[in-house]
């Protein structure tokens, strides 16, 4: 039980995908313009992570090492497509604002990295906890960045306007804002010892 908690919590703290491992930056930079999108993206990626870890761990003795990468990609792509169709059918608004970044979860390196580094050599239960922790860590990371960018860049939180139009900094919503916010947050998390170098 103790080791399960460890597998779960490492993704949120020391090995946080956004601030510790610094993986999956493409969606992090692109989607963190609003808190709502960030949470949607995080939940979608968590869903894919948990299920791909589960299946890859279950099949770890069935898949030969030499064809593991194509197998992982097929498995990950399957869950991403399920997720995409589900969003389109039940949450069309979110599906529209996340757009191309939902299918691009396939190439999110966090998912591939966890499949390769963890699920392929661990039992099912720890793999699920690893996926869940990493997914929540990713959601948290992207949400913190989005919270700061949305507040400073468009003066609102989760779409609720707070500031007047002359009180916010447009550049925060553009790509430089994403890089600045992320860089400062990574520096801060290392300074506080939350993540490892």
């Amino acid at each position: 039980m103790k080791s399960l908690i460890k597998e779960f919590s490492k993704g949120i703290t020391v090995l946080n995908p956004t601030f510790g491992l610094i993986l999956g930056l493409c969606p992090t930079l692109a989607i963190s313009t609003s808190l709502f999108n960030a949470i949607g993206m995080g939940v979608a990626a968590t869903f894919v992570l948990v299920f791909s870890n589960l299946i890859i761990s279950a099949l770890r003795n069935f898949i030969p090492a030499r064809i593991r990468l194509p197998s992982y990609i097929v498995i990950i792509a399957t869950f991403v497509t399920i997720c995409e169709l589900g969003l389109k059918a039940y949450l069309p608004g979110l599906s529209k604002s996340l757009g191309i970044f939902i299918p691009l979860i396939v190439v999110n390196c966090i998912i591939m990295a966890r499949a390769e580094a963890f699920a392929s050599s661990n039992r099912i239960l720890p793999s699920i906890f690893d996926g869940l922790g990493m997914g929540i860590g990713f959601t948290l990371g992207i949400s913190i960045i989005a919270f700061i960018r949305e507040l400073l860049g468009s003066g609102s939180i989760a779409g609720i306007g707070l500031l007047k139009s002359n009180e916010f900094i447009l550049v925060m919503i553009l790509s430089p804002g994403a890089l600045l916010t992320m860089g400062l947050l990574i520096a801060l998390s290392r300074l506080l010892g939350l993540t490892k170098r």
């Binding site: 030969p64 097929v74 399920i82």
Partner: peptide, 15 residues
């Protein structure tokens, strides 16, 4: 290898 990958793909396609 082809056989195993084929099985994975067929299951994925069915799903």
């Amino acid at each position: 290898f082809g056989f195993i990958l084929g099985i994975i793909c067929i299951v994925a396609a069915g799903l």
